[in-house]
Design a protein around this nucleic acid. Structure first.
Lengths: 346, 346
DNA sequence: TGAATTCGTGAACGCGTGTTTATTAAGAGG
DNA sequence: CCTCTTAATAAACACGCGTTCACGAATTCA
């Protein structure tokens, strides 16, 4: 029932060399002759020896572990997108022989959160961290960066004086919104509403800004009554449209949703009011959520490649940890229109 | 740019005590008077000191980390269900103050896989591991258990002489299949086909066995022509039905799919042949996949609570690691019928 | 008051490995 | 044949912390 307790001293003894030599073999030192190396490797192989990671880290080696922090706003366990991101990070870290320690940060008080996160950085000696779902310019992330940790953040803006150990990645929401509005305008829509995302998040802000710019570029007016609050969750889309349909007599012919979840909620509300999508109201989403294709009606949306983003983020982060990439990095990915069946010509 | 390098000796010096006392404070020894404890804690707080986990583990403490191993059969990154499981494990481990090191095992040669996994266990990065998606009685998992590691496995059978450090969890697929077949029989179906899952997996086997038993109990014949191979992936469901519709003149009126993904594939094939679900053929799935409710038509299925399963698995695993639960554990969860719109009365 | 016990704490050792320094053996050059 | 250099490897130290052991002080008991 006991795990094998073999260590490098034992290997050294069995191979008839000193422990230093074993260490040199393991760490590929050049000054150990092939014969000795083979002899040691044979013993290592035979006894299934693996160096103790804790001892290696303690002795100064890198932990080869990054932290993945998901800021939970009550949707982590249910949000498919978030889950995809985890796998993406793990997969690409694994390619570079790094481990991923995933952590979910719940709605805790700020001091609590930062203590928690810093504990992980300091205590577990992770080499860097990726944060997903944080509010823009989240103070505790700024603080970590100030303390010298290598950090990657999705959906944040790069500050004026960027520290060299920060990577920021975003989608070109501006372009995405332009594609969405231009598509709707092309279908003949001029009465276009919007359900916003969480305005504490950078993407919430840029999407709304992009929407307004796009409307202007298409020569359309933004009707303030059709600008609705949301928070990226399904329920907020549902509530926004419920309110709209309950109060307003003048309705938009098309609605842009800050993401697909919000669009699903909006469609649910529309259906409940006995209206049809796209017959009565057209809806366009954002993200190309895994559900969107199977959804009824299949959702027209702006596709965004989270997997590609996280791949690049993970790769750059690890390169930064290993000091290969010293320049400041900012990742921006494009979006593309995916036409399905939730918008119709008017 | 340097991270704070404070250690317990420094804390001891600053607090005017010995390092042993600092350690005793941190580990809540009872024999340190409140006054001394407060003095030390104050310094710890002031300097944001966190004990180095590597040193702690090396000195004999538990790593408080479990491994989560996902056996990838080409679908990990796309399969929503798998992703949900990750979050479930992380969340419940976190409640018990454990970290999760997630690892994806790709279709590698056996020797490669086992080396990889054993490396993680032996390097003492983790105290135990959970395996998801493995073939039944996977040899390398058996070997790990033999070597004394604490292991939890989803979708496996408990061997005759169960080692005390293994936990196995399954759904009552037998009961699930009975509910599915009985429901279809109740709607008047007697010509019922089945698309199987991966027969290397325990659930593939038990579902098919359950199907046959259920048919017998309902007094129905199993037509071998309507027993189709699958592997739990969407494509296999699509291919199975393509073949069926292409070759057979005599068709079933209802089909039981080994899981919802297979059902989606089956429905796609049926639609492509110009037939309708449930008008021409009824389909019932298994799992209650996140997509199923939004799917068109909304999928009638057997619901299974993976999140609850992984919660129990994670909790028991950690209890076993901490020697609180010494008896052999076997977890079995029930399934329930969810009626939507993919089956009709005949 | 002296002996026995308890309490508090510092010194010392061990955990397993990486790396620096010292030592020995072998080889080269004169 | 002797000295100088180089190659190979062993010995020693450091990493930060948990824990045992021992010792002195404070307390209790007789």
């Amino acid at each position: 029932m006991k795990k094998s307790e073999i260590n490098s001293s034992e290997i050294a003894r069995l191979a008839g060399v000193s422990r230093s030599t074993v260490s040199r073999v393991i760490n590929n030192y050049s000054n150990v002759p092939a014969e000795t190396r083979d002899k040691v490797l044979k013993v290592i192989e035979k006894y299934n020896y693996f160096p103790n990671a804790s001892a290696q880290v303690l002795a100064g080696k890198r932990a080869r572990t990054i932290g993945l922090f998901l800021i939970d706003q009550g949707n982590v366990s249910s949000d498919i997108l978030t889950n995809m991101l985890i796998v993406s990070v793990i997969e690409h870290a694994s390619v570079l022989d790094y481990y991923v320690l995933t952590h979910i940060i719940r709605n805790a008080k700020d001091t609590e959160v930062i203590r928690n996160v810093r504990e992980i950085f300091y205590q577990r000696r992770i080499d860097g961290g990726i944060f997903i779902g944080a509010a823009n310019r989240e103070p505790f992330i700024e603080q970590l960066i100030d303390e010298g940790f290598v950090v990657g953040v999705v959906d944040q803006e790069l500050p004026d004086h960027p520290e060299p150990n920060r990577i920021v990645s975003n989608f070109n929401n501006d372009s995405g919104m332009k594609q969405a509005v231009a598509y709707l305008a092309g279908l003949g829509h001029s009465r276009i509403g919007v359900v916003n995302g969480d305005m504490n998040r950078l993407s919430g802000q840029t999407k709304y800004e992009g929407f307004k710019t796009a409307m202007r570029m298409c020569g359309l007016q933004v009707n303030p009554k059709w600008v609705m609050d949301g928070d990226f969750h399904e329920t907020s889309g549902y509530n926004a449209i419920q309110t709209l349909l309950g109060i307003e007599s003048e309705l938009p012919t098309a609605i842009v949703a800050a993401n697909d979840s919000v669009a699903f909620g909006a469609i649910r509300a529309i259906k409940e009011h006995g209206l049809l999508v796209p017959d009565d109201i057209s809806i366009i989403g954002f993200d190309d959520h895994a559900l969107s294709e199977k959804h009824h009606p299949p959702l027209t949306t702006i596709r965004v490649d989270f997997s590609a983003m996280l791949k690049r983020m993970t790769t750059y982060l690890i390169e930064k940890i290993e000091q290969k990439t010293l320049t400041v990095k900012e990742i921006t990915l494009d979006c593309s229109l995916v036409v399905r069946e939730s918008c119709r010509r008017i």
